[in-house]
Design a protein around this nucleic acid. Structure first.
Lengths: 348, 348
DNA sequence: CTGAAAGCGCTTACAG
DNA sequence: CTGAAAGCGCTTACAG
């Protein structure tokens, strides 16, 4: 058994300790910390020495409280774990924020808008100086709160700004079109879709819309039954989705899944059912998570540049917090990544 | 272009606003917030009404500063993104902390001990009330800092407590032995290892030790050349590792990779080289990340219960912060998960 | 260029 | 059961 705090715990040195050791006022210590040029070199060095001796580091909390500006940023993503793309974005976001001098509080809403609102509220209570969200669909309460506090906020994985919140991401709809056109070009006419749109997921909805658009353009019908809507973009749901599609009267030859995880599940289930990919069935996903290239066959998908999105989000927030304007919509290229899970449609 | 703060931004209500609206002192408002039973029902309701009207939520920062106890926890993991197991642990950790009333600041050290130390320092400056780390190898500076501040700290993904820091995880060494014994039982005698131990990764080192132990037990030699050490546990390094092992004079029939990502890369590369898994080559990994079950063939591995680790870490921290003792070593079961990437060794 | 004083938004003994 | 006052560890006008 272990106990805290340890008996040998020492209290941290504080600014006033440095001040007395250096024989200066607190104000002066604060200055050498924040605007060293302003203080006489001689004194500056003396204070610096005291800082080093005491191993002093300022309490960011007190600093934030008194200065009115904190250096913590909050983010709410649908999920942090699993095989979703967001963890890559969070990693890049944290990384970039760290170099800019910010810390990141993360929370995952589990694709729940209400929960997202609660988490935003908590982040604000924690004094977050900026917010990084996902998508363009928010609870009215959340929007009101954000507007009310006027805290710098950006949203990610979408290029559409719906509420004045700057957006950074790919054009999901265009990506859906592109992937579909590829399949059409390969001769596919019977499509099946597995889409995690049941929980009003705006990114997947846009992707689905893009698919529909491209199909309509080409005059290829998409019966209602051929679209399986699921809640969460899990591998398991990909399995289930495919299982359903394969039992249709006319079995699709092309399966579009709105995330890679769904596609991996769909491929796995297809294999289990004795279907050969891509000869019997072409499968595509979205995002290009890092395992997408390693499945067998390797998955054809559209790359969602999560790391870049994370970095840009950090930079925009930093700029906004310095009073600089930032673009309302930043569209990143979504590169079509053709691998081995797609092929010419099988002869009927 | 977008600007912050919005012109219509309103300042948050504060405790004193509630106090004047309810015609009571600040102390009283504070009490209805923190120990409602102590205050007369009549007044309590009046204050509550004022709180609701103003939509007041206390500033956690000020609260932390004045009370001396914060509700933010910090974690440093080797990586948040990619196909590592940690994001699942972070998700569960955050989840559980949220229900306990804590927020989580995360940072990723990129498997760099020095960077980890800096991040711990930052977390402490941010007033973290507790720390969740990974592994049992820390920089001396980090250890000194943790001891000095006496802040509740737990470490994860290992069952060994090396510095008095409570550990929660599987017995990686035993897991390595178990996986190896499985392969030995299948008749394998020529082993190849891909281990991310180049960066003094204690978990993978323990796994490797376990492999060595089981082989020694069985009298099966493991030539130096048959162990490829890599830095990061990436899919790409798995590829490279396998490429090297396949060029040995006597090609191994069993490949042990110290993480699933490495194993996925190894399998992918083996396929590319025309080797059939598991007929020509058995491959195993560690962790059982969620895509491990979906690769073709599905990966034989050992489950690392990341979500449970995260939850327990949260609970232990919570207990420690309430002055309760917590176990120094908590070993979680690492269940062997046999799938299709392993088979009887091919006849020589 | 430096210091004394007030203040950030809370909590917490201490009186009453 | 309630309030006035001091304090948490900083920053920031304001004097000097």
């Amino acid at each position: 058994m272990s106990h805290f705090p340890k008996p040998n715990a020492t209290k941290k040195a504080k600014l006033s300790d440095v001040a007395s050791l250096a024989n200066v006022s607190a104000s002066t210590v604060s200055r050498v910390l924040n605007q060293p040029d302003i203080v006489r070199p001689e004194i500056r060095e003396r204070v610096q020495k005291a800082i080093d001796m005491l191993d002093y580091t300022p309490d960011r909390m007190a600093k934030a409280l008194s200065s009115g500006r904190s250096h913590t940023i909050g983010t709410v993503v649908p999920t942090i774990g699993g095989s979703a793309i967001f963890s890559d974005g969070v990693e890049a976001l944290q990384d970039e924020l760290e170099t800019l001098g910010y810390s990141l509080i993360v929370s995952s809403s589990r694709y729940d808008i209400e929960r997202e609102f609660q988490q935003i509220k908590t982040l604000l209570d924690y004094g977050a100086a900026g917010l990084v969200l996902v998508g363009d669909t928010f609870s009215p309460d959340a929007l009101r709160l954000i507007k009310k506090q006027g805290i710098p906020t950006v949203t990610t994985y979408t290029n559409k700004s719906r509420h004045g919140i700057p957006a950074i991401g790919i054009d999901n709809r265009a990506a859906g079109r592109e992937l579909t056109r590829l399949l059409l070009k390969l001769g596919h006419k019977k499509f099946g879709i597995v889409a995690n749109t049941a929980l009003q997921n705006d990114r997947s909805q846009a992707r689905l819309d893009g698919v529909r658009e491209a199909l309509a353009e080409a005059g290829v019908p998409l019966p209602l039954k051929n679209v399986v809507e699921v809640k969460l973009p899990t591998i398991e749901n990909g399995r289930r989705g495919l299982a359903g599609l394969v039992e249709l009267q006319t079995v699709p030859t092309a399966i579009v899944c709105t995330t890679d995880a769904l596609a991996l599940g769909a491929m796995s289930e297809a294999r289990r059912k004795g279907l050969h990919i891509p000869d019997d069935l072409s499968v595509v996903g979205f995002d290009d998570i890092d395992v997408a290239a390693e499945s067998d066959p390797a998955l054809t998908t559209v790359k969602n540049p999560a790391a870049e999105i994370g970095r840009i989000a950090a930079d925009y927030l930093n700029r906004a917090m310095n009073g600089q304007p930032i673009p309302l919509e930043t569209e990143l290229p979504a590169s079509l990544t053709i691998r081995s899970s797609t092929a010419i449609a099988p002869a009927r």
